[in-house]
Write a protein that binds this DNA or RNA. Sequence first.
DNA 1: CTTGACCCTGGAGTGCACTCCACGCTTATG
DNA 2: CATAAGCGTGGAGTGCACTCCAGGGTCAAG
Lengths: 131, 131
Amino acid sequence: MLISEFAKATGLTLDTIRFYIAKGLLKPDRSPKGGSNQYRLFKPEDVTTARMIRLQQTLGFTLAEILALNDEYRAGEHSSERTIEVLQLQIERLQQRKYALEVALSFLQRKVDWVKSGKAGPAPQMEDDRR
Amino acid sequence: MLISEFAKATGLTLDTIRFYIAKGLLKPDRSPKGGSNQYRLFKPEDVTTARMIRLQQTLGFTLAEILALNDEYRAGEHSSERTIEVLQLQIERLQQRKYALEVALSFLQRKVDWVKSGKAGPAPQMEDDRR
DNA sequence: CTTGACCCTGGAGTGCACTCCACGCTTATG
DNA sequence: CATAAGCGTGGAGTGCACTCCAGGGTCAAG
């Protein structure tokens, strides 16, 4: 698929896609078409990659962090063991975010309860979560 | 508490704290001390606010988004109903992130299973989650 | 009353993640 | 075969979230 089609499939702009390629986050093939400046050719799996990048971004990871894992994934692609290891790392990273999320949600819920109770007792606080 | 003490309690630098104040994310009182440039005085609840800001940031919210909700919260502080409404809004926002997180986690888990199965069948894909 | 620690206010600079040209080549369409 | 639509490559510019001075006032200890 050509870049504009890829843009539609992912919701990214052409500029953003090219930016990601320059950063090494996406590595599309080159079509023989386009003469000296060959066209880029995207595979369906690149769409999945792009969606994963966006998702991770909304979860507060930087492109550098995302790239690091991406590269490691690619490096161990031939070994199933290594692939699973990297995937597991990724899962752990997301589960840490999930934990932070739950801390925040619990705090807010406690606060709602506190307000509903007519602000009885001390206002809910948040633990010093510096890990 | 004075700004450097507040810095220790929150793990933020002095510059970052002042930056947040300039943005309106924190509104400490002023001490009579300090002459023409009065010292800032932080309350324990400001520590909770700061921690919440940092948490929301790691979840990918911008300071502008955080500020908007903060302001709304302050605006309706006298009314318990409004307070709960804003809190509920915040909770919904975080639950959306949680959903995104679960989409990502499920994808990764499916991928692990797929690799473990010797890559039987099609590679797991991610839904077009553009909401 | 000096000295060092701590506070204040601008304002400039940095890194990240885009975003926006300008220019030029290639391909599809009438 | 002209011409518009699409692709490519630099490179400059933008907004956000800090970060780093410079210059100057205040306070506690000796």
